[in-house]
Amino acid sequence: MTDTMEEVLEMRRMWKKSDDARDAGLPREVPGVRRIDDLSYGPDPKWHLLDLYLPENVEGKIPVIINVHGGGYCYGTKETYQFYGLNLAAHGFAFVNPNYRLAPEVVFPGELDDVDRYMHWVSDHTDEYGLDRNNVFIAGDSAGGQMAEQYIAILTNAEYRSLFGYEPVDLKFRAAALNSGAFFLLDPGMIAGKLDAYFPKDIVEKDRRRISAEDYITEDFLPCYLSTANEDFLHDQTIKLAGFLTARGVEHVCRSYGDKDNPQPHVFLMNQKDETARQCNEDEVEFFRKHMG
Rank of each mutant, 00 (worst) to 15 (best):
A148F: 00
G243Q: 04
A242F: 09
Q279D: 14
E231Y: 13
V169P: 07
Y75W: 09
I62E: 02
F83D: 11
G193S: 06
F83M: 09
D38M: 09
H91P: 11
T156N: 10
S40W: 03
G71W: 00
G32K: 02
T228D: 03
N87I: 00
R174N: 10
G243D: 09
E7V: 10
D44N: 09
G25W: 00
G72I: 02
D232I: 01
A229H: 02
P168I: 00
M147L: 11
L88I: 04
V68N: 05
H69Y: 08
E219K: 14
R35E: 15
K194A: 15
A247Y: 03
Y41A: 03
T80R: 14
E10M: 14
D51S: 07
F137S: 07
K172P: 00
E29V: 15
E251L: 12
E29A: 13
E29Q: 12
N57I: 08
E251Q: 13
E128Q: 12
V250T: 02
A158I: 08
G243R: 04
R248S: 08
F233T: 01
T156P: 11
K172V: 13
P200C: 05
E219H: 12
A139S: 15
G92A: 00
S212M: 12
V33C: 05
D259K: 02
M270V: 13
W47A: 13
A24P: 11
L9R: 14
Y100F: 10
E105H: 12
V30E: 10
P45H: 01
A24F: 11
M270W: 14
G181N: 01
F95I: 04
V204F: 00
E231P: 11
